[in-house]
Every structure is written in structure tokens, then in C-alpha cells.
Nucleic acid binder design. Structure first.
Lengths: 302, 302
DNA sequence: TGGCCTGATATCTCTAGGCGTATGGAGCGC
DNA sequence: GCGCTCCATACGCCTAGAGATATCAGGCCA
């Protein structure tokens, strides 16, 4: 790649003149007087080393040399205009792509609304969504593998990461509608001690899993896990069949199955936090935009 | 098409820095000191409105914005470099295309050598060859439908055209080897009065045709045309079969058939002229080159 | 802590070039 | 011949920008 020798204003003048084939009109289109245009063309011809236009009295025409240069000049100008526009779009956050990690348990709560709102505001932005648990999200943020994390039970000691709580929700008991406790408005945790549990496998969400089993332990019993299911829908479905009960973040109420009842638990102090995480030093306006979207459209609180 | 805002030197600096990702090295490759490079990049970033590089201590990296701009910048630069080279090639006559009209009777004489030599010297030039008789060539030169004409019996009164004689050749009698006159070294035109003639149709080359029949008339007889043939090879082949005799420009000797004899005619004053014609005001270097080629490689004189 | 590397800043110079007005000069039509 | 159109030429002005040198500031390593 060598140093370019053709100033863009001259190329611009050249292209316009090639379209108008009239110095006066071309100068008018360029918004300048005619003599400067003559100079521009002259300078360009000097640089190329050959005439680009034949000025026969009465008509201006492109020479073969000019005809050869024209498409290149035109492409260069449009490339630059388009490239500049695209770069500005990316720079201002109207385009680009954003990689978001999210906890599986959010797929039915904050995530859909967030994606919907964000896409409506920034339709040019490609969103790359991947399901990850908390620890891998933290690692991926440091790796710059993702730009945004949506996770449960955020760690407290991450100096390089920004963290903001998106949702803090209590737990609910998930019961078959036929279960005796379903008759009560609230359920004491200890009352679940004898029921078999249906839970997500610990590997899917260790923080949440540990918090749930921790709640049971605090209530004085160890949950008897009868069955694992990787998705909350499945958990509810299994509860509906009477296989057992479960404990889940309150947003699970979104899953409406007629054979399943959700009941507040007591004590109700235990809550699970959902946070958004990002790199503090991330300059991308897309991150800012996403955080703003998250702030302006607070997810429904169940 | 709007006025471009990105000076090419800055784009060049940008591309080089994007490749080197190191201000010092990039500046060295550009042949400038490092501070000016920093300035170039800064100016470009000001114009774009966003950072193009992230300068973390220790490493320079492209931002997404810069990554978006890079391909456009690269394409614009190479387009211009290539376009400029192509335009210069056309301007200097190393490329382009040249439209040549030629008389059919030259297809076996001046034309092959001319094309061969010209193509060897200017392999980048596309030659557009079309067979035309004299009058259409003159018209096509005025129309700018062709750039070069190779014609017989050029007109004298063409002020706008340049004309140069390429070849001036006598006529020869074309005889079957068994013909009594073939025993002589030279043939008097009148001796052909009783033989049937094989000639090109007048439409193929009126000037030449008229000149041949004119020769006969001058010698006191009207040729009995027994057969027409559109190509000289065919004429010779028909003569070989004994169908008749012919009169032809001497360069026809190139066609070697064992049953055909070529004999000088007397009086030998009659000659046919082949000329090259071009527009005097034609600026194209290709025309000059072709004329030079024609001058430097004189066609074989039979 | 003191070099060293790397990039940013400050300041200066110089010129290419972009634009204007005024003018010249060739064709062309009346 | 006169005026009109259209392009070129001739200055003159002025800014952008490309380049240099000198210096500063932050990380890194010994």
C-alpha cells in the first residue's frame, strides 16, 4: 500500500464533472465557482499525467483515460462515505453487536422484555445471546467473551466489573394443586420437610441450587431430591404430576399450569438477586445503551 | 455523493497503524516520525467522531468502530491506486482498445504482421478488428466508429484524416500452371483478353475491382468474368482448377498453390496503394503507437 | 528507584490547495 | 461586428494539515 496521490476533493469534482459534462453546472452542484473547478480538474490531470476530459468547444467529454479512472473514483468515494457512516453507527451504538450471557432461570423473566425493548430501540444491533451460569459469566466478562452478564447471586468482590441489581425476588413453594399445603396462603418451609423435591441439577445453577438447599437447611431439614429437571417448565410439570414439590424464585409464577400452585413461604426474608454485570472499562456505547434500557424498562415484579 | 471528509493521508496512516498496531513501527513504515502519526490518527478520530484505536498501555487495538472503518478505507485506497494505474496505462497507451478497419485483401499481407507486432509491444491493448471496404472505413473514421483504417486506394481529399501509404504493389497475373502464358516470365495484359476471369465480387472491394477491370479496359479489352469468389484463396483455387485467370495485387503471391503461377504483367506501371488512415485530431497514444509499429516493421514487399 | 519503552502533547514551520474575483479568449448565433 | 456562452488563466487570500523537534506521562522491569 503506497501513499495515495489523489486528493478526495479533486476526485469528487472529477466525478461530478464526469456526470454533468459541463463546468458551470458541475461547479454549481459542487457549490463553488467555475474557475476553482477548472483548477481542481487541472491539478488532478497533472497528477494522473494525462487529460481526463476533452474540451472541445461546445462539449466536454471524458477521455478514455478519464473513463478508466471514473469507476475507481466513484467506488472510492462511496466506499468512504458508506464506511464512515457505518463506523459512526457502530461508534454511536446504533449498530454493532453485543454478546450477552444469561442465567437459564431468566429466560422467562427479565430476558424477553429486555431483548424486545433493546431491539426496538437499536434495530441495527445484533444481539448474541448465550445461556451461562454465574461463574462462567464472570470469567467470560474478564475474557471479553461476553459484554453483558445477567446472573443470579452476583459476587461482591469484582473490582473490574460493574454490577447492578435488576431484580430481587422472594422464593415461593411450588406445589401440586392437590397438595394439602396448597390450601394455605403461605407455607412454612419446615412443612416441606417430608415432601420429595424436584430441583434443577446443581450444575445448571450452583448459586441458586445452594441457596435453595441452604434455605431448607436453615429450616431444619435436608431436602429429599426425588428428581432433577433442567428447565423450570419441566420442574413445574413434574410437580403437577405429583412427583414432589419445589422451591423457586417468585418469577416462576409466570409459568401457569392449572395443576400447580405457588405459595409464599415463611420466613420470607430470603430473596434471590438477579444482577446485570459489565466491564467497568468497557467503552462500548452498546453496553451503556443496554444498561439504560434495563433501567428504563424495569422488568415486571411478580 | 457528498463531499468526502476523510483525507487520504490520514486513511493511509490509519490502515498502516491497523496493520502494525504499534505507533512507532507504523510511523517508521510511513517514513514519518511518531508524533505526526499520533496527530493523523487523532484528526481522523475527530472527523469520525469516535475512537478508532484503544490505547491500553502496552497494546494498541482496533475498536469496533475502527474495525468497521478499516475495510472501507482499505478498499478505497486500493481502488484509487489501481484506478490510477489503470488510467495511466490507458493514458500512456499501454492499455485500452483500438478499433481497426481493414480491407479484406489485406488479411493475408500487412494485417497479420501488424497485429502480431503490435500485440507483442502492447499486450494490454485490446484490438477490435473489422473487415470493411474503403468508403465505409472513411465514414467510420469520421463517425469515430473505428480509430484506424487500412484501405486500398485512399481518397485524396480528406482534410481531417491522416493518410500514409503502407504498401504500393504492382499487379500480377494469376494463371493455371498449365496455361500457355505461364511459360513466360512476364505477361502482356492484352494476352489475357481471351481468357475467362475469376475475380472478387465488386461489392467486396469496389476500388480494387474497378482498378483491375480498368487495367483491362486500358489494355483494350473487357474481361470476361467467369466466376466470382469472395476470398483470394478461393480465387487461386479456382484458377488452379483451370476455370480461368485473374489479376491481383502482387502480395497475393503469399498464397502458394502448386498448380498456380504468378507472372509480372506489362506494362508494370499500374500499382495499387494500401494506406493507413486515422483522424488527425485523435489524441489517443494508441493510434500513434500503431502508426509507429507500422513504420518500424514494414510489411514484406513481395 | 531509575532507566526504558510507548504514546500523547505542545509548539513551530511551511506549503499545498481550495476558494474567490477579475480577466482573457475561442466559438457561435444574430 | 457584437454579444453571449463557456472554459482557461492569473492573482491573492487564507486555512488545513503534514511534518519536525522537544517534552511529558504512565507502565514495566531490573
Amino acid at each position: 500500500m503506497e501513499r495515495p496521490e489523489l486528493p478526495l476533493p479533486q476526485l469528487h469534482a472529477f466525478v461530478v464533472l464526469a456526470e454533468e459534462l459541463h463546468f458551470g453546472h458541475a461547479a454549481a452542484r459542487l457549490g463553488i465557482a467555475q474557475p476553482p473547478l477548472s483548477q481542481q480538474i487541472r491539478r488532478l490531470e497533472d497528477k494522473v499525467g494525462h487529460a481526463l476530459f476533452s474540451r472541445e468547444p461546445g462539449r466536454v467529454m471524458l477521455t478514455p483515460t478519464g473513463l478508466e479512472l471514473l469507476p475507481a473514483a466513484r467506488r472510492a468515494l462511496t466506499d468512504l462515505a458508506d464506511g464512515l457512516a457505518a463506523a459512526r453507527a457502530v461508534g454511536s451504538g446504533r449498530a454493532g453487536h453485543l454478546r450477552i450471557g444469561f442465567a437459564a432461570s431468566l429466560a422467562l423473566t427479565v430476558l424477553p422484555g429486555l431483548l424486545f425493548n433493546f431491539r426496538q430501540r437499536f434495530p441495527g444491533v445484533h444481539l448474541d445471546i448465550r445461556e451461562m451460569t454465574t461463574a462462567p459469566q464472570i470469567a467470560a466478562l474478564h475474557d471479553k467473551t461476553i459484554d453483558i452478564g445477567l446472573l443470579r447471586e452476583p459476587p461482591a468482590d469484582e473490582a473490574e466489573l460493574g454490577l447492578r441489581t435488576v431484580l430481587s425476588e422472594p422464593f415461593v413453594a411450588v406445589l401440586p394443586a392437590t397438595h394439602p399445603l396448597a390450601a394455605q396462603r403461605t407455607v412454612k418451609l419446615a412443612q416441606l420437610a417430608d415432601s420429595p423435591f424436584v430441583l434443577l441439577p446443581r450444575a445448571v445453577g450452583p448459586q441458586l441450587h445452594d441457596q435453595i438447599t441452604g434455605l431448607c437447611t436453615a429450616a431444619g431439614f435436608t431436602p429429599q431430591i426425588a428428581q432433577h429437571a433442567v428447565e423450570w417448565q419441566t420442574v413445574c410439570a413434574l410437580v403437577e404430576t405429583g412427583l414432589g414439590v419445589s422451591l423457586a424464585p417468585a418469577s416462576i409464577r409466570r409459568i401457569r399450569l392449572k395443576g400447580v400452585a405457588f405459595r409464599r413461604i415463611e420466613p420470607s426474608t430470603a430473596r434471590t438477586r438477579v444482577a446485570v454485570a459489565w466491564r467497568r472499562d468497557d467503552q462500548s456505547p452498546l453496553v451503556t445503551h443496554l444498561l439504560a434500557t434495563l433501567g428504563q424498562d424495569p422488568p415486571d415484579r411478580p
